[in-house]
Simulated scan of single mutants.
Amino acid sequence: MDATHAEALTGMLTVLVLLVLLVLPSLIGIAHERRVDRRIRQAGEAREEAGGQKSSSRSTVPSTATWYAEGRRSKKLVSS
């Protein structure tokens, strides 16, 4: 193996390592998202099996976004 082959091998390995370093965070993120989605799905299925009928645990008080939107809708537009 002469110097040209060694340089080519070093260059290819460098590019491969850089590619792995760029792609690895995305692959870890995808795996994490899939795991979270699976847990959410399992929790939903367990809730359906245990409860039979869905009950809402949400508050009946409207959210801030709803309150803001209703206030904005009630104001009349003034044309100038």
Rank of each mutant, 00 (worst) to 15 (best):
D2W: 05
D2A: 07
D2S: 07
A3I: 15
A3E: 15
T4N: 06
T4E: 08
H5T: 12
A6D: 13
E7C: 04
A8I: 08
A8S: 06
T10G: 05
T10E: 10
T10Q: 10
T10V: 09
T10A: 13
G11I: 05
G11D: 06
M12D: 10
M12Y: 11
M12N: 11
L13R: 15
T14G: 13
L16R: 14
V17S: 15
L18I: 06
L18T: 06
L19D: 06
L19E: 07
L19K: 09
L19F: 10
V20M: 13
V20N: 06
V20Y: 12
V20H: 07
V20C: 09
L21C: 10
L22T: 00
V23S: 06
L24Q: 11
L24N: 01
P25G: 15
P25E: 15
P25A: 15
P25C: 14
P25M: 12
S26Q: 13
S26E: 11
S26C: 13
S26R: 12
L27Q: 12
I28K: 00
G29S: 15
G29E: 15
G29C: 15
G29L: 15
G29D: 15
I30T: 08
I30F: 05
I30D: 04
A31D: 04
H32P: 01
E33V: 13
E33F: 10
E33L: 13
E33T: 14
E33Y: 13
E33S: 11
R34G: 03
R34W: 10
R34A: 05
R35C: 04
R35P: 00
V36G: 02
V36H: 03
V36D: 00
D37T: 08
D37L: 14
R38K: 14
R38F: 07
R38L: 08
R39W: 02
I40P: 01
I40Y: 04
Q42M: 12
Q42E: 14
Q42W: 08
Q42A: 14
A43T: 11
G44T: 03
E45A: 10
E45C: 05
A46M: 06
A46I: 09
A46P: 02
A46W: 03
R47A: 07
R47M: 05
E48P: 00
E49T: 08
E49V: 08
G51L: 11
G51D: 09
G51A: 09
G52M: 02
G52A: 03
Q53F: 00
Q53G: 00
Q53N: 01
K54E: 05
K54G: 03
K54A: 06
S55G: 02
S55E: 09
S56H: 02
S56D: 14
S57W: 08
R58Q: 06
T60S: 07
P62T: 04
P62S: 10
P62H: 12
P62V: 03
S63C: 07
S63W: 08
T64G: 03
T64F: 12
T64S: 10
A65K: 13
T66L: 12
T66Q: 14
T66P: 02
Y68I: 01
A69F: 09
E70M: 01
E70I: 00
E70G: 02
E70T: 01
R72E: 06
R72Y: 02
R72M: 08
S74P: 01
K75I: 09
K76T: 09
K76W: 03
K76Q: 07
L77I: 06
L77N: 04
L77F: 05
V78W: 10
S80P: 11
S80M: 07
